[in-house]
Design a protein around this nucleic acid. Structure first.
Length: 581
RNA sequence: CGGGGUGUAGCGCAGCUGGUAGCGCACCUGUUUUGGGAACAGGGGGUCGGAGGUUCGAGCCCUCUCACCCCGACCA
């Protein structure tokens, strides 16, 4: 490819809406351009990187025995109604009608379509297991698209779906995909970790996210440095230990024959103290002596959950342990209907079902909201003063928490970009959509399913996020847009151009992905562009060195230059060939 | 969805108390250049996001609207 005939759209300055390094660099390198919020053009340089990632994914999918298909991204509502997701899926699902008024949506994922497809085509256990996949655009009307193609509304996803006769077989399909994912991200040169993720409500099912480690990642993951344990913070279990010391304290405070501490509740004025931190400072106790009451709106109605003041609620874990489909923090409006005041909510006389984090078991005589503006209560105790429906592990894990794998190790938080997710579905969709095959005994059985996604554009962005320096992008050679650029520093010098053209042709003959920067630009611009878009190998041909019969080979990442005699040009080509393969 | 912010040339920005729009980069032409984003000379490009209003006069003031960006469940 000659650059004079190419679409190279590099920019000196990044547009002001770009925040992350990868977003800035991808725009500056002419890889992507925004068309609308969360919707992007891929320009030639970007598309080349995209295709390389895509091909690695395709290659590993094929090697793992998955079979490629292509499903539509415009999907009819009846499939979604059948699975029950038409009503559950919120505004993320972009819905519209065709000319006849039929309802459709842009597919955000394809469980419905693929389950329907396999149900119709696969009748017998003899044709199982089967894993099919596609690489195709998806649309999710995200609340807040950001970071360029990292979180886009329209994006390309590789989604695979496995179908098995039973759970045991499904686990094998899952682990094949899991292994394929590891190979894919290794081949892309990414530093990543597979972490345990939300396993949903179905017993025995599990899920892993593949996280590229990056400071700008949107997800927080908890990792153990000593063992392999890693999990999304949303789902990391907290190892609970009943505190003996507190129990002894508790004993001392017990009244004769009574089961509860005798400290009397005290109502105190706490003007404008709405956060646990405010209250702790105002009252002069540790924040860990505060109990905060959070009101939740769920599919089973309004309820409350209690947490220690310095702990954070994990809605994911709460939903899971409560067996809820839906839960979010109650709105101001919902709270205003209760016998309480926002900022001063407490469990006493709150006419709601109250649940609590396990840690509450270790707490006595704590501070809670008074359900009255500017008032809190001291010496509140559950059991004596109010009833807790149930305890569960629902707080978010924190730095220093015990590793669930080994009690002697501790967890540390780090950030990651979720580039892949493998999920064991079980029979969730085959049941809701009545998708069955005939087993050995001639009986109908529901398929055991798994689904496996990779965001292709996000992998590209994550790779850029991990591979860059002050001059631009430094992608590894197997996903760089080109292998080699030939840079003649003076396009008017016939000798220089002849040699440049010659080397360019030789590289093409060897199937090296090469560009010739024959633009009538100064050498400086060519160097800057080559570095910015991240061509790993640069062959520099200039008049002065050519007089000495040499050309230069420069390594993008290390900036090291090798001088090579023209007569040894074959050696150069062989050297490049080795690096590329 | 709530809160905040920004829309002026392709990109980055300036534009005062309202007086007919500018800078840098990019682009085009020519000449000289060519080893890390060249120099000089000349040139093109804007219904100032859109609609309405106030005014003799609006990029600037008012109202509405659209787009884009940032922050936000952790307070219950």
């Amino acid at each position: 490819m000659k650059l004079s005939e190419y679409l190279l759209a590099t920019l000196k300055e990044a547009p002001n809406d770009a925040e992350t390094i990868s977003h800035k660099l991808m725009v500056r390198a002419g890889m992507i351009r925004k068309v609308a919020s969360g919707i992007y053009n891929f320009l030639p340089i970007g598309l080349r990187v995209f295709r390389k990632v895509e091909n690695i994914i395709r290659d590993e999918m094929n090697k793992a025995g998955a079979i490629e298909v292509m499903m539509p991204y415009v999907t009819p509502s009846d499939l979604w109604i059948k699975s029950g997701r038409w009503d559950i899926y919120g505004k993320e699902l972009l819905r519209f009608n065709d000319r006849a008024g039929r309802e459709f949506c842009l597919g955000p994922t394809h469980e419905e379509v693929v389950t329907d497809l396999v149900d119709k085509e696969i009748k017998s256990y003899k044709n199982l297991p089967l894993t099919i996949y596609q690489i195709q655009p998806k649309f999710r009307d995200e609340i807040r698209p950001r970071f360029g193609v990292m979180r886009a509304r329209e994006f390309v996803m590789k989604d695979a779906y496995s179908f098995d006769i039973n759970e045991e077989s499904a686990d094998k399909s899952y682990s094949k995909m899991f292994d394929a994912y590891k190979r894919i991200f290794e081949r892309c040169g990414l530093k990543f970790r597979a972490v345990e993720a939300d396993s949903g409500n179905i017993g025995g099912s599990f899920s892993h996210e593949f996280m590229v480690l990056a400071e700008t990642g949107e997800d927080v993951i908890m990792v153990c440095d000593e063992c392999d344990y890693a999990a999304n913070i949303e789902t990391t279990p907290v190892v609970f230990k009943q505190k003996d010391l507190d129990l002894q304290e508790h004993e001392k405070k017990r009244g004769a024959g009574k089961n509860m501490p005798e400290n009397k509740i005290e109502k105190i004025s706490t003007p404008s103290c709405v956060s646990a931190k405010d209250v702790a400072e105002f009252v002069g106790v540790k924040i860990s002596k505060i109990v905060k009451t959070m009101v939740l709106s769920t599919n089973e109605g309004i309820e409350a959950v209690l947490l220690r003041g310095d702990h954070e609620l994990s809605l994911t874990k709460y939903k899971k342990h409560r067996g809820l489909d839906f839960a979010e923090l109650a709105s101001d409006n919902e709270i205003s209907k209760l016998k309480t005041v926002k900022g001063f909510t407490g469990p006493m006389n709150l006419e709601l079902k109250i649940y609590a984090d396990n840690e509450l078991k270790n707490m006595t005589s704590y501070v809670t909201g008074g359900n009255e503006k500017d008032f809190h209560l001291l010496n509140v105790n559950h059991g004596r003063d109010f009833h807790i429906e149930g305890f569960m592990d629902c707080r978010q894990s924190m730095d220093g928490d015990e590793c669930p794998g080994f009690p002697e190790y501790t967890l540390k938080s780090t950030r990651g970009i979720e580039v892949g997710h493998v999920f064991k579905l079980g029979t969730k969709y085959s049941e809701s959509m009545s998708a069955v095959f005939t087993d050995k005994d001639g009986k109908n059985q529901h398929f055991f399913m798994g689904c496996y996604g990779i965001g292709v554009g996000r992998v590209v962005a994550a790779a850029v996020e991990q591979n860059n320096d002050e001059n631009g992008i430094t992608l590894p050679i197997n996903i760089a847009p080109f292998h080699v650029t030939v840079i003649p520093t003076d396009t008017k010098n016939i000798e220089v151009m002849n040699n440049a053209n010659n080397i360019y042709d030789l590289l093409i003959d060897k199937n090296i992905e090469v560009i010739l920067d024959d633009r009538k630009e100064s050498a400086g611009i060519k160097f800057k562009d080559a570095d910015l878009i991240g061509i790993p190998l640069q062959i520099i041909i200039g008049p002065k060195s050519l007089e000495k019969g040499i050309i230069e080979l420069r390594d993008r990442s290390s900036s090291e230059k090798d001088e090579i005699l023209l007569e040894n040009i074959e050696d150069l080509l062989n050297l490049i060939n080795e690096k590329v393969r």
